[in-house]
Write a protein that binds this DNA or RNA. Structure first.
Lengths: 191, 191
DNA sequence: GACCCTATGTTTACAGCGTTCACTTTAACC
DNA sequence: GGTTAAAGTGAACGCTGTAAACATAGGGTC
């Protein structure tokens, strides 16, 4: 999704925006990642702070672009995880585990993804993680209203668990994730 | 929990700490509240920024103290809500609704309460909201391990719902809260 | 009642932040 | 090949949290 030129110069043509996003993601990724400042990213890319404003109206826009990248990544990892167990009800449960694993693996990025005020929207096509969720629940529950409730409940519990673990309220323990996201005990009406 | 003197002066004696916390809470409370800066609070209280450092080692310590106040408030509101419906299983469900309602009523405060790194601890006695939770689940589930799982699941779903609503991912709708936190469908093994 | 000590405040200063403005460079086009 | 618009620079502003040196006031002791 991001392409950076190999030439060390010529930022003067086209790729500053992507270079900034790449620098931002690499600052955010990893368990020790933290939200980078605008000036920090400009430095990392070898450009003056104000150059950033040629590509983003303000810091918030930069953050939103980074959040969008994060959402794509999350959706991707979830889809892969679900595919690995063969989809269906097991795949649904797996997307939940992948969600929490993603949050724990990229805490700063995950936080950024959800702190941007409005939900992020790529021009036209929406959040892939969310699309996956609604597709899964529609397949599991017959009634569409039941499906939506199930989707939001599943999302809430995964998100809450992720947040509470990130915030140090609940030990970030793999076995605990397993126990908490047991769909059979949680949502007995489905699957 | 916080007491502020009525005299407009004499901060030189005793109450700057409490005055700062009061100013902080009033900045945080309300739907439009935002996290106040240290200097902002110093200004509000009529004191130089560095005076704050006589009472808190750094900004983070001030934030933690504010978070602690928030946790007390939350626990209080939950207990009241549960008492109003007469405790028991209905009371348990009510604490969940109160949790989400609190988050929506005081977004900035709620965020602050959970972004302080380590869980907050008042010297000795712990988070009242959490005590209420474990007491409730122990009463509902016989097996203590089942009770703990239930507690963490209930916490996660309430917290996740609150966060997703605060972040604009899910409409902050009262009827939706009701539907999402329906304990009978969520945790059929209990109550 | 004078004295000193400690708690609590002030002033000044520094580096970093996001952002604005005026200016310069550069690549592309007729 | 000169013009123009896009994409960069540099200096500056007000904000932030924080450190260091200094001022002041109140309480306890002689």
């Amino acid at each position: 999704m991001i392409t950076v030129s190999t030439s060390n110069e010529a930022y003067h043509h086209g790729n500053l925006r992507d270079a900034l996003l790449a620098a931002g993601l690499s600052a955010l990724e990893g368990a020790e990642g933290k939200a980078p400042s605008l000036r920090e990213l400009a430095r990392a890319v070898g450009v003056s702070p104000t150059a950033v404003y040629r590509h983003f109206p303000d810091k918030h826009a930069l953050d939103k672009a980074l959040a969008l990248e994060g959402l794509q990544l999350l959706g991707q990892e979830q889809a892969e995880a679900a595919a690995k167990v063969g989809g269906g009800s097991a795949g649904f449960a797996e997307t939940g585990r992948a969600y929490v694993r993603f949050a724990l693996a990229h805490p700063a990025l995950f936080r950024l993804m959800f702190t941007q005020g409005e939900p992020i929207e790529h021009a036209g096509h929406a959040d892939p993680a969310r699309e996956l969720l609604t597709a899964n629940t529609r397949a599991l529950a017959g009634d569409p209203e039941k499906a939506e409730t199930l989707a939001l409940q599943a999302w809430s519990i995964a998100h809450g668990l992720a947040m509470l673990m990130l915030d140090g309220r609940i030990p970030a323990d793999d076995a605990l994730i397993e126990r908490m996201l047991d769909t059979r005990s949680l949502f007995p009406q489905s699957g």
